[in-house]
């Protein structure tokens, strides 16, 4: 464990020095993420000009939900996004060999090597948005509620990572992950909508099979509404199963990996 922690500190150091080399890109990335946050907040502000409630939530409750998915996005962009971008290329070009022979878990190395230092400031901004929406929330809540929300947001990030991996891993067999990645980014919009709007098969898909609706919506529900054990158990069970499925496909993929480039 200590070895992995030390390794991650090295990743951080390299990533920050690399980010500082490309200063203009550094500023562009910050602006881009801020714009993404503004667009998402404005979207719901406009919706609430036409309705007082959405999926059972008021505007201030919706802002907590929005800040939850903005924070999940910020963490993912900072910790995983660059790695997820390069992973299909490594598999396609047969470059995975270098990682398979290292004395560390290849999944750990390939998922966490590139820390997006230029997104780090956005992570701070996203955290600020969450704090702002909590401060302006009129209903009472305790420190334990906030702590649970933070843990569930981290769990949401893990679900997001697993879903993304599930869309990347077919590259072991299909040679190109572009279609699946496009699909992933399209499905990402389900994370940005409250889960109660989904009904029927769409609900099954987004809360069980590809649980994008659990990423931010369930954590927000458990914070805003009274703690509900079945919701919590659902979230926990799906997260564990998803992680196991992702690991299973990763191992299958490694067995199918031919080392040849395409």
């Amino acid at each position: 464990m200590r070895r992995y922690l030390m390794l991650y500190l090295y990743f951080l150091r390299f990533s920050f020095s690399k980010a500082m080399e490309f200063r203009l890109d550094f500023s562009f990335r910050i602006l881009m993420d801020i714009l993404y946050y503004i667009v998402n907040i404005l979207f719901f502000k406009i919706i609430f000009l036409h309705t007082p409630m959405l999926a059972g939530w008021t505007e201030e409750q919706m802002m907590i939900f929005v800040s939850c998915y903005i924070l999940v996005d910020a963490i993912s962009m900072t910790v995983f996004s660059s790695n997820m971008w390069w992973l299909p290329h490594h598999i396609n070009r047969g470059e995975l060999d270098y990682h398979l022979i290292r004395p560390v878990s290849p999944l750990f190395f390939l998922s966490l090597k590139e820390f997006s230092a230029n997104s780090f400031l956005n992570l701070v901004i996203a955290l600020g948005i969450l704090i702002y929406s909590l401060v302006n929330y009129s209903q009472p809540f305790t420190v334990a509620d906030v702590l649970l929300l933070v843990i569930l947001i981290l769990n949401g990030t893990l679900i997001y990572y697993c879903c993304q991996m599930l869309m990347i891993l077919p590259v072991f067999w299909t040679q190109s992950s572009k279609g699946f990645m496009d699909l992933f980014f399209s499905m990402g919009i389900a994370m940005e909508r409250p889960d109660r709007i989904f009904k029927g098969w769409l609900r099954v898909m987004f809360t069980i099979l590809l649980p994008f609706a659990l990423i931010a919506s369930f954590p927000a529900r458990l914070f805003i509404e009274k703690f509900h054990w079945p919701t919590f158990m659902h979230l926990t069970a799906v997260s564990i199963v998803l992680w196991m499925v992702m690991l299973f496909i990763w191992r299958k993929g490694l067995r199918a990996y031919s080392s040849a480039s395409s």
Partner: peptide, 13 residues
């Protein structure tokens, strides 16, 4: 395969 996944899946979802 990419083409069909993007064409149908993305739009439909």
């Amino acid at each position: 395969s990419d083409f069909w996944i993007t064409f149908l899946g993305q739009t439909f979802i």
